[in-house]
């Protein structure tokens, strides 16, 4: 039997719910791979050119894939009334929120990180770039998930919130994408890549500290009005 409060309870529950609908996990992943394949088709198959832009393309696609899947983060809880029950739970709202965002990262950010080497192959990423790219993605997609959850909370009650969510979250993604793709580019250029990775880690720490509190407050506002 499961308790219905706290971080682990919500993490387990969301993973269970997602497990019952595995198609939802696959869609962002397939999008990630498909969209990235279009870039060589639209530009050039030249490996020399592609290797320079590969980290950037992979990061932009990861960003879009995260945004695509973010809309559903609170949507079903909003429509079936679970979110209202969360609001009046005696425990703080921050832990359930963090649990849900973690579940989101485990089912989008982590799989994206794991399939990214495959995209690296398609886009002729130099060998030195793989490990830093994956490390950067693993940390950076955490930031992406947290910020996307903030956007999802703000737009949860709107009929067509998905596009607006993208619009309000994208500018906030700017620092993540800069340092994320720099991590891979540094190592390709033979520089130490721990610097940008450390900054990504710092941004993740800041996001973990601030975003769940903000999301909890936003949910109190947008769930019921």
């Amino acid at each position: 039997m499961i308790s219905n409060t706290g971080f682990w309870a919500f993490l387990r529950r969301d993973l269970l719910l997602i497990n019952r609908r595995r198609g939802e996990v696959a869609s962002p992943l397939i999008f990630f791979i498909m969209a990235a394949t279009f870039v060589p088709l639209g530009t050039t198959p030249d490996a020399e050119l592609l290797k320079d832009i590969a980290p950037g393309i992979i990061w932009v696609m990861a960003l879009l894939a995260t945004l695509l899947s973010a809309e559903s983060l609170f949507a079903s809880d909003y429509h079936d009334g679970s979110l209202e029950q969360m609001l009046i739970s005696p425990q703080l709202l921050v832990m359930p929120v963090l649990g849900k965002v973690t579940a989101h990262w485990l089912t989008t950010g982590l799989p994206l990180t794991l399939v990214s080497p495959f995209l690296g192959l398609l886009l002729s990423l130099p060998a030195a770039g793989y490990l830093p790219m994956m490390a950067g993605l693993a940390v950076g997609t955490g930031c992406l998930s947290l910020l996307a959850a903030l956007g999802a909370a703000l737009t949860v009650s709107l009929q067509k919130g998905g596009l607006l969510l993208t619009l309000i979250v994208m500018p906030l993604y700017m620092p993540v994408i800069i340092f994320g793709s720099a991590t891979a580019q540094y190592s390709i250029q033979g520089l130490a890549w721990s610097g940008p990775l450390a900054i990504l880690g710092a941004m993740l720490a800041l996001a973990i500290a601030l975003c769940p509190v903000a999301i909890a407050n936003v949910l109190r506002l947008t769930t019921i009005n």
Binding site: L154, T155, L164, P171, V218, N225
Partner: peptide
């Protein structure tokens, strides 16, 4: 533009105000 779009997305003015203030 994000703040502006969010402001006018809600039916309720109060919620629009608060949401865009947070953003």
């Amino acid at each position: 533009l994000g703040v502006l779009a969010l402001q006018y997305a809600f039916n309720s003015k109060d919620v629009g105000n608060k949401a865009s203030a947070i953003l």
